[in-house]
Amino acid sequence: MSLVLASTSRYRRELLQRLALPFDCARPDVDETALNGEAPLALAIRLAAAKAADVAARHPGAWVIGSDQVADLNGQPLGKPGTVDAACAQLAAMAGQTVRFHTAISLMRDGESLAAVDLTEVRFRTLGQQEIARYVTAEQPLDCAGSFKCEGLGISLFEAIDNRDPTALIGLPLIALCGLLRQAGFAVP
């Protein structure tokens, strides 16, 4: 069976490589803008499905993995910062707070669809502006929802991480994905 990751994210690609399944990557053409009043969980689910559907339309017969993660600070979605100033502002807003990260995955093929969602809660410690600036300068997490990389120096920003799947916070919940892939007929491991 053919497998395609609907993403060009190096983080998701590296995670999927852990499963030792052959796969291709394709860039989805999806507007990631939140709809007016859309809750963070609903946004993650909608975007994961839209990414999978877009790539599946171009790869008939292939199973396509779509994934999206949305950081949820008090019910408000936080996207990828894109700039140093935006990353610093996000981290300052999250300091001393618990932030929920909704990571949705959608596995699609020719009208068939399987889906799962993972929730990770991250408790940020109180952070000073200088700490934030040092961290952003060191890791440049401009392409990461929430402005950090938990697999790197970002771990120093937290008091705790509560989750079922540590890969979810990086962007692709492999435990849930393995279950979906087995349902679709893949031999994992």
Rank of each mutant, 00 (worst) to 15 (best):
L78K: 05
G66V: 06
F101W: 09
R58S: 07
A42I: 02
G111D: 07
E121N: 09
R100G: 07
V70Y: 07
A87V: 01
A133Y: 04
A42G: 08
W63M: 14
A48L: 13
L78I: 12
F148N: 04
E38Y: 06
A133T: 08
I45C: 13
R123K: 12
F158C: 00
S147H: 04
L127I: 12
A57D: 09
W63S: 04
G66Q: 07
Q76E: 15
H102C: 12
G128F: 06
R134N: 15
G66K: 02
D54I: 11
C88Y: 03
A50S: 12
A53M: 12
A86M: 09
S113G: 05
Q90N: 11
S156R: 05
V99P: 00
R100E: 15
R100F: 14
S67L: 12
L114D: 04
L142K: 01
C144Y: 00
S106F: 08
T120R: 03
K80H: 12
P81E: 04
A62H: 03
S113I: 10
R109K: 09
D118H: 10
G128C: 07
V64T: 10
D31G: 07
L107R: 02
Q140H: 12
I161F: 10
D118M: 14
A95G: 10
G152F: 02
D54E: 13
L78V: 11
C144A: 15
I132V: 08
T33L: 14
N36R: 14
I155H: 04
G37W: 09
D29G: 00
L119G: 02
A57Q: 10
G111Q: 09
H59D: 08
M94P: 01
T137E: 14
G75V: 13
Q90H: 15
R46L: 13
V55R: 03
E32P: 00
E159R: 08
G111L: 09
V99W: 01
M94T: 03
F124H: 01
F158L: 11
E139M: 04
